[in-house]
Design a protein around this nucleic acid. Structure first.
Length: 670
DNA sequence: ATAGCCTTGAGG
DNA sequence: CCTCAAGGCTAT
């Protein structure tokens, strides 16, 4: 007995999931050559069955291959050789001579060992190279999932020594391209620590991609942290959007990523003076010091301070991609401020009480390793719920354009209270042993599935159609959405523990959240393109364009949501956890085993809370704030669905799954 | 509003 | 003491 009839469940979705359920051990199956579904060619009668068969082909594809590069830390030892080979094959790992030389001399000075991987493989230690390759593969996978496709073939991976651990090895790996390239290179930085678990530089510019434990020198255990240098990635993306943005800004960015100057905190640890020789990552002016989490010039420091303190809101008069340099930095404060945030400047570094002097305490407040107690220590010291001290720090001042969630007065206060409650309603909270920077296994498992959602095969826009026509845009959007829906189902099916939920419940959950998930995906994709919604690697839409097409409201809300993700510094782990939280909702009507789902939800929210509280100890409101964004996401997707439904031709032969879901939902409502 | 310089003050 | 990252002041 199926629930599908009573609840208006999409028969396509039902069949897809049901068939999937019967094919247990799917990872071991011989892969069926995957063929992208092309439902637009089908007629109405055949749609469902053909869509299902295509979907199933896709579903049965083993995920192990896709996920092999991102094995869990515990598998790392056994897997490292195989992965290393894979990584080696996947990309020729070249070491840029200039960087190599500079780093080598630097490291020799610091009595560090240098590991280099070259095409010839004449490396220092085979084991170390294996580890480097594993990390490179991991980083590569991460980058490919996050960087626009045209950029994914050229990235830089740099590892840093930590001064506190003079025996730590360092690696610089570049996959392709070279420094002469005009474009700023996105960077992945691998911190390669020794076993002491000593301090790891954690500047605000960086996004921690992963933490690993693996074989180190002479059989010892080593801790590794893979960090993505956020600012660089962002600038690389923005540059990709506007082709003309090369010249000075790019040169400055390249200098910032490659020169010993801004080359990172690891370097600045050893030679603080060197950190001051580079250029401001915002405008290219002379650096004046470490301000609000980033080395910047005096003017950008002042600009950031004024903007945040005075709660200014700017609007870009162009497309939100203005080039910012020393000469035109006054022209577009909106883009300048965006660039500040993308470079990693911290809102929480601006003191709400305006006290002068002394030392700050936010995460990344110093370019030198960890001047402060560890998050774990701080957590122990943290005052109990509701103390005035805590309250005063709960919410960072909101300053982003068009987003002012914490205005003074009743509304702001109730919001703050809610945030405080959310953040402190953790019974018997347990801190992880040792370092507080561990990533819960549940989150890494979910992260590993991101490969299933990669935009590696987005539809090409029809050559015959005028790419600027409204119809062409709709067609493209529908095709893209359709493809993403298929991937979404496959992704959900492979989620840890989701398979243990009954098929009917799986369907209900998916049907409940598919549009929210798509909406959140678009926001995440747009995180480095302020004021522009990046629909795919090739398509983006501004608010003005959206207004012209009649869905300015939705795009405006999505842009606001994106700005919130940016403001909260939501990272990849948090993003993937939020997605699963959208899926795992025990309150949906009709579920057979809501308690099972509730259990899963609890585990996941605990994992996310642990992650956020340890990695962002200085943002105690972050966890609550993130959760508070989810209802708005549901509102947005609701409005979007209404629009789609109206826009849908009365008898739409295309887009099987999407149409099924949209119409099914409508049927339930009626 | 900007940006260069000044003052402050906790932590080393 | 000194350092340095915060906020403040003020000529432009």
């Amino acid at each position: 007995m199926s629930l599908s009839g009573d609840l208006g469940i999409s028969p396509v979705l039902l069949q897809a999931i049901s068939s999937l359920t019967s094919s247990e051990g799917r990872q071991d199956k011989v892969p069926v050559k995957q063929e992208r579904p092309s439902p637009r060619k089908m007629d109405n009668h055949q749609t469902s069955s053909k869509v299902v068969s295509h979907l199933l082909q896709g579903m049965n594809e083993p995920v192990s291959g896709l996920l092999a590069q991102s094995s869990s830390p515990s598998d790392l030892g056994q897997e490292s050789d195989r992965l290393a080979a894979q990584a080696q094959k996947q990309e020729e790992v070249l070491l840029n001579a200039a960087i190599q030389e500079r780093l080598a001399s630097h490291l020799v000075m610091n009595q560090n060992r240098v590991i280099t991987t070259t095409p010839a493989g004449n490396s220092v230690s085979a084991a170390d190279v294996s580890m480097v390759n594993v990390l490179t593969a991991l980083a590569s996978q991460h980058m490919k999932a996050n960087i626009k496709q045209e950029d994914s073939d050229a990235f830089t991976t740099i590892a840093h020594p930590t001064t506190a651990t003079p025996t730590g090895a360092s690696v610089v790996v570049r996959s392709s391209g070279d420094l002469q390239d005009d474009r700023p290179q996105p960077q992945i930085i691998i911190y390669y620590n020794n076993e002491s678990g000593g301090s790891v530089p954690s500047p605000g510019n960086d996004v921690i991609v992963g933490e690993l434990e693996g074989d180190g020198v002479q059989g010892s255990i080593q801790n590794y942290r893979v960090v993505m240098h956020h600012g660089d990635v962002a600038s690389a993306r923005v540059t990709a959007v506007s082709e003309q943005t090369v010249t000075e800004a790019a040169a400055a960015a390249v200098a910032a990523t490659a020169s010993p100057g801004t080359f990172v905190s690891g370097e600045s640890n050893c030679a603080p003076d060197a950190a001051m020789t580079g250029n401001c990552p915002i405008c290219g002016d002379k650096l004046s010091g470490y301000h609000y989490g980033v080395f910047t010039c005096e003017s950008c420091k002042g600009f950031f301070k004024r903007t945040v303190q005075n709660k200014k809101s700017f609007q870009c008069h162009k497309t939100g991609e203005c080039d910012i340099n020393i000469y035109n930095r006054k022209k577009c404060p909106a883009c300048r401020f965006s660039k500040c945030l993308n470079a990693g400047m911290r809102l929480e570094a601006i003191r709400q009480d305006r006290t002068r002097g002394g030392r700050s305490s936010y995460d990344g407040c110093s370019p030198h390793g960890k001047p402060r107690p560890s998050p774990l220590q701080r957590k122990v010291k943290r005052p109990s719920v509701g103390t005035s001290d805590e309250d005063s720090k709960v919410v960072a001042a909101p300053v982003l354009p068009g987003v002012d969630l914490f205005t003074a007065g009743e509304e702001g206060r109730s919001h703050r209270q809610l945030v405080a409650i959310l953040n402190h309603s953790r019974p018997g909270q347990q801190a992880p042993d040792g370092e507080g920077q561990r990533v819960p296994e549940l989150l890494t498992d979910i992260m590993n599935l991101e490969a299933l959602l990669a935009d590696d095969d987005i539809p090409q826009e029809g050559a015959a159609e005028d790419p600027n026509s409204e119809q062409a845009f709709y067609n493209y959007l529908m095709q893209l959405t359709e493809l993403r829906l298929y991937k979404l189902v496959r992704w959900a099916r492979n989620l840890p523990q989701f398979g243990a939920i009954s098929t009917d419940d799986q369907i209900i959950l998916l049907q409940n959240c598919w549009s929210d998930l798509l909406a959140l995906g678009v926001c995440w994709r747009s995180i480095s393109t302020p004021n522009v919604l990046s629909i795919s690697t090739t398509r983006s839409i501004s608010l003005q364009q959206a207004e012209a097409l009649g869905f300015g409201d939705v795009v405006g809300r999505l842009l606001n949501m994106t700005q919130n993700l940016r403001r909260l510094h939501v990272d990849q782990y948090e993003y993937v956890a939020l997605k699963v939280l959208l899926l795992i909702t025990p309150d949906v009507k009709g579920l057979k085993e809501p308690s099972k789902i509730h259990e899963y939800q609890e585990k996941l929210s605990e994992a996310l809370m642990e992650y956020t509280s340890t990695h962002y100890a200085q943002m105690p409101s972050k966890f609550g704030e993130m959760l508070l964004r989810l209802p708005e996401l549901a509102r947005i997707s609701f409005i979007a669905k209404e629009i789609l439904l109206v826009a849908l031709p009365p008898t739409s032969p295309s887009c099987g799954l999407l149409v099924e879901l949209l119409k099914g939902e409508n049927a339930v409502k009626d």
